[in-house]
């Protein structure tokens, strides 16, 4: 009788301890899980209603000029370099005019404009079809500033978002990327195999008050700012130049604009 009462008390005691320790474990879990991805916004953090980008393609003549821009992104985000093209991970890359704008490849375009290299990346659409498709909300549109962002820890790797993206902006980790990262940047997490990733408009840099890595490396050819602030530099450029966007007719409202 006594021993059984003791065991019952022990059981309840342990249960209570277990329940009481839950918040502690949660705190640990957050420390090691989610907040590794969640970059705390500092006092100097850049803020916007909807971040947008204007790329002045006139300032680029050859693919070589895009190299440092792409490299800056690759370095900042631990992008692996694979030999097998099937496994490729790309956040921002260079392509030709008729690939960037397949719906409107005007014929007899000025040779100069047609030969120019074009940078393509996630458009951080205002109506992102990828976020609609994701069955776990692992990719979502961040309400605070409109960035279409990923939670690499929640992604199940179904790749529905890749089918949904009309711009081919998403990549999948077909194998462990870590051994293929040329130079590890400890300020940004690496990914594991089996999850999707893409450009995040450098959310981690914005939180520290820095502009995106590609913008910084572009020496003024790429401008970043708030689409809904009439005084922003982005809006100034949109006012003063004729710009186009990729596949506008699909209604996704891309936030990357091109001055052609």
């Amino acid at each position: 009788m006594d021993s059984s009462r003791r065991s019952v008390l022990k059981f309840f005691g342990l249960t209570a301890l277990g329940l009481a320790s839950r918040p502690v474990f949660n705190a640990f879990a957050t420390e090691h899980g989610h907040s590794a991805m969640h970059f705390e916004k500092g006092a100097k953090a850049l803020k916007a209603k909807q971040w947008a980008m204007v790329i002045d393609t006139r300032k680029f003549e050859s693919a070589d000029e895009l190299e440092p821009i792409i490299e800056a992104c690759n370095k900042a985000h631990n992008i692996p370099q694979f030999e097998n093209k099937n496994h490729e991970i790309k956040w921002i890359w260079e392509t030709e005019y008729h690939n960037a704008f397949p719906q409107s490849p005007n014929r007899f375009l000025s040779e100069e404009a047609e030969q120019r290299p074009y940078l393509v990346l996630c458009n951080h659409c205002e109506n992102p079809p990828c976020c609609r498709a994701c069955p776990t909300q692992a990719t979502f549109k961040r309400e605070s500033d409109g960035i279409v962002i990923m939670d690499f820890h929640r992604c199940i790797g179904c790749r529905f978002c890749m089918a949904a993206c009309p711009f081919g902006s998403r990549s999948f980790n077909f194998r462990d990327p870590r051994p293929f990262i040329p130079e590890l940047n400890k300020d940004y997490p690496t990914r594991m195999k089996g999850v999707v990733e893409k450009c995040n408009f450098c959310a981690e840099r914005l939180a520290k008050g820095l502009e995106p890595a590609c913008v910084e490396a572009s020496e003024g050819a790429i401008v970043f700012g708030d689409l809904y602030d009439p005084e922003s530099e982005v809006r100034k450029l949109l006012r003063e130049n004729y710009t186009i966007r990729r596949k506008q007719s699909l209604g996704t409202e891309p936030c990357v604009y091109y001055i052609v």
Binding site: N84, K85, N86, H87, E88, I89, K90, G157, R159, M162, A163, G168, S171, F172, N173, F174, R175, D176, K193, G194
Partner: peptide, 12 residues
């Protein structure tokens, strides 16, 4: 990983 399949970034 799924790299042992023929799938790619384009045919996902």
């Amino acid at each position: 990983g799924l790299g042992i399949t023929g799938m790619s970034r384009d045919v996902s």
